[in-house]
Each structure stands twice: as C-alpha cells, then as structure tokens.
Design a protein around this nucleic acid. Structure first.
Lengths: 218, 218
DNA sequence: AACACGTTCTGAACATGTTCAAAAGGAGAG
DNA sequence: CTCTCCTTTTGAACATGTTCAGAACGTGTT
C-alpha cells in the first residue's frame, strides 16, 4: 500500500476510535450503538467494521494504546522506591490515575473471564500485553530478596493481585474510589510483608505447598 | 389464582426451563436461541419471556434450584470431617461433582463481575443465595479455633476463595478438570494452614493489617 | 348461556451487533 | 486515457435478544 494511503487509512481508523471513545464516555459503552459511532465519524457502519472486528475491539484498541502510553509512567513508578511495597503501590497508583477518566469503560473489558475469549486478559490474543505488563512486576522485584523456589512465580502472582485490584477499582462506587486506594495500600503492604516472610526458614513447609500448587496451575 | 391453574403455570415454566437446559447442554448457551427454546416447548417466544425475564434468567433459574438441591449434599459435606481442611474440601468437591454435567453452562453466569448486574454473584439480587452459601462456611468453621478479630470475616473469605475455585474450574480444560481439583486441594490446605497460623501470637501484627483491610472493604 | 376479568400466549415489530456483495476510489501500468 | 487491481466504503440484509398490543383461555358470577 501507498504511504499516503496508509496515513489516510490510519487517520480514518483513529477518527472512528476517537468518536467511539467520546460516545462511550458520554453515554457508556452499552448505551452507544455502532450506528452512532459511524454517524459521528461520517461513515457507514460497515466502515467501522472494516477497521475494528467488533464493538468491544474498540475498547481493546483503546486499552492497547493506553498500555503504550503508560509505559514511561510505569517506568518511573517502578524506579520510585527501593522497597517492594513502594514500587508496587506506585505501579498500581499510576494505573488508577491514568485510567481514571475511563474507569467505567474498562468494565466492558473486564467482563471477559473466559480465557478462550480473545479480549480476556488471560487469552492467547492478549498475551503480548500481559507479558509486557508482568515485566514491570519482575522489575519491581529486582534486588528484593526472595526464596529461589518462589522466584519464578512471584511476578505473575503480583500481576494477578494487581489485576484483582483493578477489577475492584473498576466497580468501586466510593467517592474517588477511595475504597480501592486503601484496599491497594493495605493489601500491597501485606503482600510485601509476606514476600519478606517467605524467606524465613520457619515458613518453608507452607511455602513448599504453595510452590507445588503453582507448578500445577501455571 | 386457581390451584389447578397454578400447577399448570408452574408446569409450563418447568417445560420451558427444561427445554432451555437441554439445548444449552446440547449446543451451548450462546448457540441456543430463544426461538429454539420456545419451539421445543411448543410455544411462541413471548411465552418464554412471560416466565423468564431474559435468556440468562434461565441459567439463573437453573442455578437457584441447583443451590436448593445442593443443600443436603453440602449438609453432609460440612459434617464429614472434624478438621477445617476436610470440610472445605468436601464442600468444594460436592459442588464440582454436582455441577459437573453443567459446568460450561455456569460460564454464562460467571461473566457478570459487575456487582450492579442482577445476575452477578455479588449483586443485591443474589444476596439471599450468597448468604445461605456463606452459612456453610460459617459452619465449616464451627469449633475451629481462630482469632476473635478475624472471625467475623472468615466465612466470607472462605466463600470468596471457593468462588475463585469454581471460576477456575468452569474454564478448566484439563481432563476431568484435574487441575482444578489439585488446585482446590492444595489451596485449601494452605488456607487451613493459614487459619491455624493466624492464632499464633507472632503473626498478630500482620493479622491486624489484614483485619483493617477487611473493615475497609466489606 | 352470557359476561367480566385475570392469566397465559401469540407473533409481529423493534433494537442493535454483525456480515457481505457490490460500488466507489485511487494508484500504477500500458 | 483506460484498464487493472487493491483498498475503502456503502447500506441493505441478517441474526437474535427483547417488547408489547392484543388474542385466546379459563374461571367464577349473574
């Protein structure tokens, strides 16, 4: 394809996505129809489907660029502290802050628990995003002492916890999602405490069981 | 309403539900249309909607009667052991076994993470079911020693863990859901271990934080 | 029998996500 | 300029969950 044509195509795609996100923010994901999105872009419905596989794919496209825009912020977050707790809190808070405007929109994605669904955060299709994201938790653990046997699983476990926090946050109706913030604060404090505890020789037996469990599941 | 009419009405409702469940099992929830369900019952679509608010409400109706049928089985399960771990395992395994035939069907329900949605396991509408279910975990904890401050939260926490296990199980593609079974086994062993550990004076500070967290969230 | 009235049932109509055959556009080749 | 080929766009058609005005039914009353 032509370079100029490529640019134009990408512009059209962006215009559709922008219109969609505007409408999603204005009236919610479910209340917005594909016909409205197309109309606001000045195109027919078919055009929207030419660029996006489905209505939900629009949300996914948003999520993908968001994840890219987030990268420098996560970069800063992960380096903001020497302690695990501080790093984890910075990571989670960076996401809370970044997605604040579109919090409810993420609800449209979080409904996919089925790992076979391409839009699920656990699907094969979203693997690239997921692994990159897990990488930040790997870095948060850098120079943190932890038992050898648990080490390979910890980044993914922390990521999972953060996904849980995000999920809670998406549906958190409290003022300014304050409940989520304290939940994050306290649960991450506990997590950091447990990671420290995990190296204590006394807890080895229980850690053994945990590692066995993880081997079977992941 | 007439007694005879009431019986007939309930029979029709049951016929619709049966037809629906048959079809769901034959070709999956999504692949089944309301028109097919009505046709198999020998009625028009409208009739199905007279008895059930929505397609998903059919699954919910199934779940409600299932929960009732499960009660005697859970009763047995909760009394099957003196130890917490044994009781929890019996409870979870009773559910796995009972729902085995309709495992995939539960996927249609589990997609509702949004607590505002009436079919969510966390919604106001499903509160009665949920509280009854939590009651079994309360009973599983009977005559198990645990710290006072944590006691009010434990049943709900155990219920939550079991919900997580059920969710994993619903999408578990391994032969006979063996992965879920080992996951349940091992994670419940850890849970029971942690409950025992929670009473140890040394862990009081970390338990304090956990309790604070729970106060803020529940 | 005729009527009134609540319950049950009908099926067309509607809303909306999605598909698809065909039209329109545009760029390069001859 | 015309033809070809690929990309983009159109908009009607489709599938399916859901609604709803009205028909049919059944039962008790007069």
């Amino acid at each position: 394809m032509n370079a100029r044509a490529l640019v134009k195509s990408e512009e059209t795609r962006a215009r559709i996505l922008d219109a969609a996100l505007e409408l999603f923010r204005e009236k919610g994901f479910e209340q917005t129809t594909m016909r409205e999105i197309a109309a606001r872009t000045g195109l027919a419905v078919g055009a929207a489907y030419y660029y996006f596989r489905s209505k939900e794919a629009l949300v996914m496209a948003f999520y993908e660029t968001a994840q890219q825009e987030l990268e420098p912020l996560l970069e800063v977050a992960v380096g903001s502290s020497k302690a695990l707790e501080g790093r984890l809190r910075a990571l989670v808070e960076a996401k809370f802050d970044y997605f604040a405007e579109n919090r409810e929109l993420l609800g449209a994605l979080s409904s996919h628990v089925d790992p076979r669904h391409p839009l699920s955060p656990f699907s094969e299709a979203t693997k690239a995003i997921r692994e990159r994201d897990i990488g930040y938790f790997e870095r948060a653990l850098e120079s943190v002492s932890m038992p050898k046997d648990l080490a390979p699983y910890l980044p993914r476990l922390l990521w999972l916890q953060q996904m849980g926090l995000m999920l809670y946050w998406v549906y958190d109706g409290s003022e300014g999602q304050s409940k989520s913030r304290t939940l994050a604060e306290r649960s991450l404090k506990i997590t950091a405490g447990l990671v420290r505890l995990a190296s204590v020789p006394l807890v080895r037996p229980i850690r053994r069981i945990l590692v066995e469990l993880l081997e079977g599941v992941i």
